[in-house]
Each structure stands twice: as structure tokens, then as C-alpha cells.
């Protein structure tokens, strides 16, 4: 089978990025390597507020990777990321070649003086306080004997 090049964008949980950036990046690259992919470049794309909450998060870190894959294990990679709690979203696309700019950006990130800015703390969606259920009032059952029924006839 011919080797093909792919581009992937992964949305990572900010909690993982706060712990350690290398560990967060490894969550992406390890999955790729596990399924026989060769990672060409991998870099931090952006950290931003999401357009809508994803798995209870308002913010997330995007990671951009280019890799080659020979085997037909794409479905396994997708499934692994879908089941992972660290990965919020992923998108894998087929590309012809890695853009020249990507190599430069990835190299800049690998340099020693690159520091990952700490994500802002407001990435969790604030849950609305659940109002305590008011005690149900006792249902008044009228005593049928007390009701004056109109006399028939």
C-alpha cells in the first residue's frame, strides 16, 4: 500500500496542557506512533475560546500534526481519539505534502527558548446551581361525606 500524507488537528483539554505540555503533545503523537504512523511535524496551533462548549470545556488547545501512514489503521486512530478523555475533538485530512511553513513553525517550537503560555483558568463551563426541589404540598383530598350534593328530583 502506498504511503500517504495526512494532516490532523486535535483539540486537547487545557487541564492536560497545564500539567505538562510535552505530556499533552505525547497524547497525540503516541497514538499516531502506536498505529504505525510516522509523525513528520507536530506543533501547538493555538489556544482559544471555543465557539461552543465541547465536553464541558469553554477553552481548548489545538495541536496540528502532519504524518504519513502506510497501513489501513486510520479507523483505529479515530476511535482511540474518540474514546480518549484528553482529546476533545479531532479532524484528519488527506494532503499532498507538508507545507514548507509547517517545518519552520515546528522547528521554532522544538527550540529551547520556546515556552508554552499557560492557558487561562476559565476553561470549564460553569454549571448552573440546581434549585432545590420545593417540598410537595400535601394534596388535599376532599371528604366526600362533607360535600352537600343537590337532592335529586
Amino acid at each position: 500500500m502506498k504511503t500517504k500524507t495526512y494532516e490532523t488537528m486535535v483539540l486537547l483539554d487545557n487541564a492536560l496542557v497545564r500539567e505538562d505540555w510535552k505530556k499533552a503533545k505525547a497524547a497525540v503523537t503516541d497514538t499516531l506512533a502506536k498505529h504505525g504512523a510516522t509523525v513528520l511535524t507536530c506543533r501547538r496551533f493555538d489556544e482559544k475560546k471555543l465557539a461552543y462548549p465541547v465536553k464541558g470545556r469553554n477553552r481548548g488547545t489545538f495541536v496540528m500534526c502532519y504524518f504519513t501512514l502506510e497501513k489501513e489503521t486510520m479507523a483505529d486512530i479515530r476511535r482511540d481519539w474518540e474514546l480518549s478523555e484528553k482529546v476533545l475533538r479531532s479532524l484528519i485530512l488527506r494532503v499532498e505534502e507538508v507545507p514548507a511553513k509547517e517545518h519552520e513553525l515546528a522547528a521554532a517550537e522544538d527550540s529551547a527558548d520556546f515556552v508554552v503560555p499557560a492557558p487561562p483558568p476559565d476553561d470549564m463551563v460553569e454549571e448552573e446551581p440546581v434549585a432545590e426541589a420545593a417540598p410537595a404540598d400535601e394534596i388535599m383530598v376532599p371528604d366526600l361525606n362533607d360535600i352537600d350534593m343537590p337532592a335529586k328530583g
Binding site: 488537528m9 483539540l11 482559544k48 471555543l50 465557539a51 461552543y52 465541547v54 481548548g60 489545538f62 476533545l88 475533538r89 479532524l91 485530512l93
Partner: peptide, 11 residues
Amino acid sequence: KRARHMALLPF
């Protein structure tokens, strides 16, 4: 549509 899937743009 790809940007919407990645939560970069709103639906």
C-alpha cells in the same frame, strides 16, 4: 463545516 466541527466557528 470543518471549522465548525473543530469548534472554531459556531453553528
